[in-house]
Design a protein around this nucleic acid. Structure first.
Lengths: 332, 332
DNA sequence: ATGAAAGCGCTAACAA
DNA sequence: TTGTTAGCGCTTTCAT
């Protein structure tokens, strides 16, 4: 039984010898009441183990300190970093995240969001800028504050805190060209579902081709991203892609896996093959060689988005493109 | 405005030309109604973009498809694996997790749980078996189903799905003894806050000492666990702990970092030094050497706990000790 | 097969 | 400073 016999304000009121409304006031610290009453109520509440019923207050019109958060996956550390930023920020504001994982499916995302909206959250954090029309409509109508994170190339529903995937991809391509890595392989994961990776690669390719470079091998595995996948993809790539100079990986996990392959098989990096990743995850610092990558402010994105949705200022929604930064390591 | 002008069942009823109660019945598919009415209601709801208000139904006594989940940290991949198991399972049962992170603090955990209980979740998943008395009382009184995960050495509030940390530690010590790794260093993180790691190490130490082994170096950093920390701790350890045979790390991240140190500095593993971790995280498979570790069914623990709390059978609460398994790699 | 009334626990508005 | 009344949106119960 969920509603077994949880004490209500009524019970506390009876125990304290006051009215239910007085209990409400004391517990919220709102309005006037004597010190004596305050103490009696506090004692009674503690003795009974009273727990506030937020469902009722929200129902009555109070703000719901709940934020819905939808991420594409938990398998990529990228999102756990973002999540950490969201969670730390919401925590400090006494708000709670409700989570959902879309597995990179737009329809799953819509279902999830509709479900979450039924709890009347005061805010919502979504990943990416591509959503179903139904989702957008539902979100707007709900009146919840929305922030979209991760991407900056497109039109957000309302506020957004993302990075330009296109800029990041183009920057890396220019670096490859400058280093003379012209015959390039690309390795990705999640099939074509990772829309941000696709944008990045598309800009990378365009910029590379506009120079003297070429994509001589391209493999986007359907499997979720992991170091092990990166290692396997790199092994196959090096075997199949003759004359390959460099590998651009869709993210750091894949790149780290590729580096592990090279170390294990004594392939010299960047002598035989150059390597680059994306995100600049902290664990890269522990590897034997610093992998060239693009720094993205993951935690920061989480923080900004959480702050925005948690507040209720009526400012018009910021659409912020956070900066990425090319991190030149020892692998290019 | 959160409650801007979200349509209610009343609005749908007006649009469909029926009573509000009929809308309720149709939308839940409960009771009797004609096909004609069903269609009119469905159309009206779709047109208005009606979203169910779960707060009201739960308030009225329906089960709340919400599960509170409290984890010690998000910085250790261990918990994101558990989280994945929880999330996948709850998703498939149309239930949603509300998350909180305790940062390994028992009082923070209590605050978090009290906060979560105010949403009247039908279940709760907690990590470990050590909690404040206040938390236990609140949870029991709330009537929510509780499952505790990760640990099996102690007394759960109700149901538990954990592994015996003591067995795992002792097993590893026996393996060290069998391999002749007698002069052992221990590296940990999170200060003394990771109670499970402490239990494991305690059993490891006892078993090692009962053989011919000894702990010649012990360093538990206050920093959160990471590969980079492992690498740094290993560097200091190898410099300070003379005659050290082997390093037992509190988890795989630390062990992987230690291995990276060894690879970078051409320290032979296990020739010069043996290494072992804990958890058998998937990324170990990508490393140049297979690290000896203890497999723990992380995802599975999440699945079991989620299934238990999501259901509402009145069976008496299972206290399951899941099996760990020594994974002998190439580093011992 | 449909509707009307009551009430879940709380808070805003008003009364005393 | 404290209490009374009304009602948030829904579902249970009972009537039609």
């Amino acid at each position: 039984m969920v509603n077994s016999d949880r004490p209500t304000m009524h019970d506390v009121a009876a125990a304290a010898g006051v009215s239910q409304m007085t209990v409400s006031r004391v517990l919220r610290g709102d309005g006037y009441f004597s010190q004596d009453v305050k103490k009696r109520v506090a004692d009674a509440a503690a003795k009974l183990g009273y727990i506030h019923n937020r469902l009722a207050s929200v129902q009555r019109g109070m703000k719901n300190p709940m934020i819905g958060v939808v991420l594409p996956t938990l398998k990529n550390h990228v999102f756990t970093d973002v999540l950490a930023g969201i969670n730390d920020t919401l925590s400090s504001l006494n708000m709670r995240p409700v989570f959902g994982v879309s597995e990179y499916s737009a329809t799953a995302e819509e279902t999830l969001v509709r479900d979450m909206l039924s709890w009347q959250p005061s805010g919502l954090i979504l990943s990416g800028l591509e959503h179903t029309e139904g989702l957008k409509r539902a979100v707007v109508q709900s009146g919840a504050r929305v922030a979209e994170i991760m991407d900056a190339d497109g039109t957000p529903i309302s506020a957004s805190f993302g990075v330009s995937q296109e800029t990041a991809g183009a920057d890396m391509a220019r670096h490859f060209l400058a280093r003379g890595h012209l015959r390039v392989a690309y390795l990705g994961s999640q099939g074509g579902d990772d829309l941000r990776a696709a944008k990045r690669f598309s800009a990378f390719r365009d910029t590379l081709l506009a120079g003297d470079g070429e994509i001589i091998y391209e493999r986007i595995s359907k499997a979720p991203s992991s170091m092990t996948l990166g290692r396997d993809l790199a092994a196959t790539c090096l075997q199949k892609a003759e004359g390959c100079d460099a590998i651009y990986c869709a993210n750091d996990d894949l790149a780290a896996g590729a580096l592990m392959h090279c170390i294990t098989n004594e392939v010299s990096v960047p002598g035989d093959i150059a390597l680059a990743g994306f995100n600049d995850l902290p664990f890269l610092a522990a590897l034997p060689q610093q992998i060239t990558t693009t720094h993205t402010p993951l935690y920061e994105m989480g923080v900004r988005a959480a702050k925005y949705v948690a507040l209720d200022s009526p400012d018009d929604p910021p659409k912020e493109a956070l900066k990425t930064r090319l991190v030149i390591g020892q692998t290019t």
